[in-house]
Amino acid sequence: MLQLVYVSSVTPGAGATDPAAILAVSRANNRRDAITGMLYADGGRFLQALEGPPDKVEAAIDRIKADKRHRSIVILSSREIETREFGEWEMAHSTPGEDADSFIARIAKLAANASPNVRATFEGFAQARRGA
């Protein structure tokens, strides 16, 4: 099974980044393709882990690269894993006015079963983005 982690920036003016719409489409695609993982979105950045069959994960990242809402996509890690680290696919989205500590705690809970490096990536990213 392939696990891929990437970060990207939201392209200004490229269209809606409504988290509910992203979540609905992503859940349907990921269920169809047996992909799990986690998506962090805060309105300015995306950080996502995708895990599943290699061909399906690579097709998903190709769709993301073609999505005009994403720019500056950087693959942070790509590795083979024996078992899923995230279970069901989840999305963590920071909403304006949300308590930063609560949001960071939610990220930590969702990434609790990930490898130490992947968990640190999500937790560190949430911490760094707290003031953004």
Rank of each mutant, 00 (worst) to 15 (best):
M1Q: 02
M1A: 12
L2N: 04
L2S: 09
Q3V: 01
L4W: 08
S8P: 03
S9Y: 12
T11L: 01
T11P: 00
P12M: 02
G13W: 10
A14C: 06
A16Q: 08
P19H: 08
I22D: 03
I22S: 05
I22H: 00
V25Y: 09
S26V: 06
S26Q: 11
R27I: 00
N30E: 00
R31W: 02
R31A: 15
D33V: 00
D33A: 01
T36F: 01
T36N: 04
G37C: 09
M38P: 04
M38I: 12
L39N: 03
L39C: 01
Y40I: 09
G43N: 02
G43Q: 11
G44D: 05
R45S: 01
Q48P: 05
L50K: 04
L50Y: 04
L50I: 09
E51C: 10
P53E: 13
P53W: 10
P53Q: 12
K56V: 10
E58Q: 03
A60S: 08
R63C: 13
I64N: 03
A66L: 01
D67W: 09
K68Q: 13
H70W: 02
R71P: 03
R71C: 14
R71Q: 14
S72V: 06
S72R: 14
I73R: 08
I73A: 13
I73Q: 13
V74T: 15
I75D: 11
I75G: 03
R79E: 13
R79Q: 03
I81Q: 09
I81N: 04
E82N: 09
T83Y: 12
T83M: 11
R84D: 02
E90R: 15
M91V: 07
T95K: 14
G97R: 05
G97K: 14
D99S: 10
D101C: 10
D101M: 08
S102Q: 14
F103S: 03
I104Q: 04
I104M: 11
A105Q: 07
A108I: 10
A108F: 00
A111V: 11
A112F: 14
A112S: 15
S115P: 01
N117G: 11
T121K: 07
T121E: 14
E123I: 06
E123Q: 06
G124F: 15
G124C: 07
G124S: 03
A126P: 00
Q127N: 15
A128P: 00
A128K: 14
R130A: 15
R130M: 09
G131Q: 05
